[in-house]
Structures are given as structure tokens and as C-alpha cells.
Amino acid sequence: MKNDPGLLDVLACPSCKGRLQYTSDEKLFCDACRLVFDVKDGVPVLLVEEAEPAD
């Protein structure tokens, strides 16, 4: 599986549909919603109920 950077670039927040930032600890962050989405074994998990609130 590749889950290429191109794909990560085009993924959006399921809550506000805004852009996500790929963080240095390899997660996806929505600045507007202050939510952190996990990337498990290379798989972005874009489920609001599984997202963590940002600190």
C-alpha cells in the first residue's frame, strides 16, 4: 500500500470539510475544528468520533 503524499494532500476534515495538515508525528490535523485524526499503519482514519481534540 502506498497512501501517497498526494492523497494525504487532498483529504479533508469530515466535520468542516476544510484542509488537513500532516503533522510531524504523522497525524492529520484540522486547525479549524482543533481535531487530530490518526493515521494507523498508513491508513488515515477520518472519522469524527475517533478523532482526538487538539491540546
Binding site: M1, N3, A12, S15, P44, V45, L46
Partner: peptide, 25 residues
């Protein structure tokens, strides 16, 4: 099996709320 392929991407998301435009690029 699919995850062994370099031509495969996978995203865990729900069609009910996911922003689909990026996935359709």
C-alpha cells in the same frame, strides 16, 4: 492482499460525512 500492492490506497472514512472531492481526484 490489496494492502500489499503499491497501487493501493486506503482511507477509513464514512460516505455520510467525508469530503469526497479529494478521494475522487
Amino acid at each position: 492482499k490489496a494492502r500489499q500492492s503499491s497501487s493501493y490506497n486506503f482511507v477509513e472514512a464514512s460516505l455520510v460525512d467525508a469530503e469526497l472531492s479529494g478521494l475522487l481526484e
